[in-house]
Structures are given as structure tokens and as C-alpha cells.
């Protein structure tokens, strides 16, 4: 049973974060050969840090977890504590993980990666599909036929390019079973970002984002920020292309 504060305390994390960002590195246009490209070593090239604040997370109810009894032990490091039997996420930790995830999303979009949005559940599926449509990416919110990644040539009847990044807005099919696509993406070495609630297993996910994965408000919030990150990446790509052409 989860009772005390998590092992990974904020006071150990914050100095590291401050150190990383206090050097005030300005986004620089690195010249690779003759062509301009986004700097992969820059901590925040697309300025995704400013897409949201911790208060935005709070207002989107990202901090709500499930009841204590359903806790997956692997999630305990992201939890602040519990209130009235419900677990509460530490939003400072969540914010850092989300920013990392947004950064990788923007970089993938910049390099014309195929990004696939996932979510199971009828209530929020439309929000996710709409977000994917609006940023020119892809969505899969329906029943997962086995083998879409692992047996793609048979499934689509021809050689098919698989996504380069999968974003899971929830990682569970129902309260117990994890989405098969997480396992399949890991098998095919496809990077994954996953919003993991307190009852989820974050182990197979490349970039876990601890947070509430049930409320429509929260899903709307995630969709908004990921959409913005993708659009930032694409915009930058266009800009660089125009400049490189000249």
C-alpha cells in the first residue's frame, strides 16, 4: 500500500533541471554541411517548454490518479501523495516528462516522421482523431487488429511505412489489459510516448508521461500541446527549407 512520499523526491530533481536550463542556451541554427537543421543536442530547440505551465496541468486535472489500491508499484516514483484514498501526481515531475516528450515529438515532426496517436475508449476517441487530423498526422482509436506493426505487409497487402513515433493518450484497453500496440511498437523499435496513470505499467514506453488518462479535459489538454509541438516542428521545417533553397 502506498503511504509515504515517493522515493524520487523533487528536491533531488529540481537542481538537475535548473542546472540544465539555467545556462540560458539560445536556440541556435546549427549548420550541417551547407544545410541548416534543428540542433538535436539543444535541450529545447523548438521552445516547447512554454507550451504550458504547471498551473495549466493542474487546471486540466492531470494530477488526479486512481484509488490507492489500484497502484502499479512502478508508478510510485511519480506520485506526490494521496488524498481521500486517491493518488495525486507530482505535477512538477509530470511537467518535466511532458516537456521531454513534446521535444521529441517536435523533432520527429521536423524530420517528417510519421506520428500515430492512440487512445482506446469511446468517450475521448473523437478528440484524439480530430487532433490528428488537424496537425496532419495519424490516429488509431479503434480495435487493434493484431499484427499491424509486426505483420504489416500482410495486413495492408503491400510494403508499408510504419509510424516513427506512437503517442498513447491512454495505455490500457480496459482497466486491466495494456494496449497490444505498446508491445508491438517495442518489438519493432518504434519510439513511444505514453500518458501513464497510476494503474499503468510504464516499463515498455520510451517516454512515459505520468498523468490522468481518463478525463476529457486532460485528454483535450494533451492533444492541444502535442498538436502545437508537431505544428512547431513542421513550421520550423518549412522555414529551414525556404532558407536552404535560397
Amino acid at each position: 500500500m502506498m503511504a509515504s512520499r515517493p522515493i524520487l523526491h523533487l528536491r533531488y530533481i529540481l537542481p538537475r533541471i535548473n542546472l540544465k536550463y539555467s545556462t540560458a542556451i539560445q536556440p541556435s541554427e546549427v549548420i550541417e554541411g551547407k544545410q541548416e537543421t534543428a540542433d538535436l543536442k539543444h535541450p529545447d530547440y523548438f521552445n516547447v517548454r512554454n507550451l504550458f505551465t504547471v498551473n495549466d496541468l493542474f487546471e486540466a486535472r492531470v494530477h488526479y490518479g486512481h484509488k490507492i489500491g489500484s497502484l502499479d508499484e512502478r508508478m510510485s516514483q511519480y506520485i506526490y501523495g494521496n488524498r481521500l484514498g486517491h493518488l495525486i501526481f507530482d505535477l512538477d515531475i509530470t511537467a518535466e516528462y511532458l516537456r521531454q516528450a513534446l521535444n521529441i515529438t517536435a523533432h520527429t515532426a521536423y524530420r517528417d516522421g510519421v506520428i500515430l496517436f492512440f487512445l482506446r475508449g469511446a468517450q475521448n476517441a473523437h478528440i484524439v482523431e480530430k487532433a490528428a487530423l488537424e496537425c496532419g498526422e495519424f490516429a488509431h482509436t479503434r480495435f487493434w487488429r493484431g499484427g499491424i506493426f509486426t505483420n504489416a505487409n500482410k495486413q495492408f497487402g503491400e510494403a508499408t511505412r510504419l509510424p516513427d513515433l506512437c503517442i498513447f493518450f491512454n495505455t490500457l484497453n480496459n482497466v486491466l489489459i495494456q494496449h497490444t500496440a505498446i508491445r508491438d511498437a517495442a518489438k519493432m523499435a518504434i519510439a513511444t510516448i505514453g500518458v501513464v496513470d497510476t494503474n499503468c505499467n510504464p516499463n515498455l514506453i520510451t517516454y512515459p508521461v505520468p498523468g490522468n488518462d481518463d478525463s476529457p479535459v486532460a485528454i483535450q489538454f494533451y492533444c492541444k500541446v502535442f498538436k502545437s509541438a508537431i505544428l512547431l516542428g513542421k513550421e520550423k521545417r518549412k522555414e529551414h527549407h525556404n532558407r536552404n533553397k535560397q
Binding site: 524530420r111 517528417d112 496532419g136 498526422e137 513550421e235 529551414h240 527549407h241
Partner: peptide
């Protein structure tokens, strides 16, 4: 490889037109 030039090749579906498409 992907850092290279664009073309405005014909895009038929209006779905992708709605979004900023740099594909």
C-alpha cells in the same frame, strides 16, 4: 536524408490540406 527540399506535388485529399503539411 530528410532535411532537404520540398515540392508542391499534387495533393488530392482535402484532409491533409487542412493541416500544415510538410510531408
Amino acid at each position: 536524408n530528410s532535411v532537404c527540399t520540398f515540392s508542391s506535388s499534387g495533393e488530392d485529399s482535402n484532409i491533409t490540406k487542412q493541416a500544415v503539411n510538410v510531408a
